[in-house]
């Protein structure tokens, strides 16, 4: 019997996010793993949606954003093509502390906004 341990939601303005990335050339590498950068292929909406997913997870983990390593929360594609969350390092430790055993992720975007919702389940 699983129960919901946490939820997180985040919404990102695509244009604004793209501009923030352009101004700081190293930011894309800081925020996204090599796999994510490959999956996004430079598309701002996809990057914004993945960023929203990361922020939603940190929210679900009740971790403030200052100094977090965004690579600790990665969005990967399952064989079905559906996006799924892969946690590592500090995010994984924090999730274990909270007893989280399973994540659900849903992404959405329009040309203007990108959003993500995550649900964390425990036993």
């Amino acid at each position: 019997m699983s129960s919901t341990v946490g939820i997180g939601i985040d919404l990102v303005d695509v244009d604004r996010f793209a501009k923030v990335l352009r101004r700081r050339p190293r930011l894309t590498e800081r925020l996204f793993t090599a796999g994510e950068r490959h999956d996004c292929n430079g598309a701002p909406q996809r990057m914004a949606a993945r960023f929203a997913a990361k922020e939603a997870v940190w929210k679900a983990l009740s971790v403030g954003l200052g100094g977090v390593n965004f690579h600790d929360v990665a969005v990967e594609r399952a064989a079905s093509g559906a996006p799924e969350l892969v946690l590592s390092a500090r995010a994984l430790t924090r999730a274990a502390e909270l007893g989280i055993t399973n994540w659900h992720l849903s992404l959405t975007h329009t040309p203007v906004s990108a959003g993500a919702i995550v649900i964390a389940e425990g036993e």
Partner: peptide
């Protein structure tokens, strides 16, 4: 300017 570019996300929040 930010010492680490990803801090921008915490500030924007």
């Amino acid at each position: 300017h930010l010492p680490e570019p990803s801090y921008v996300t915490a500030l924007e929040e």
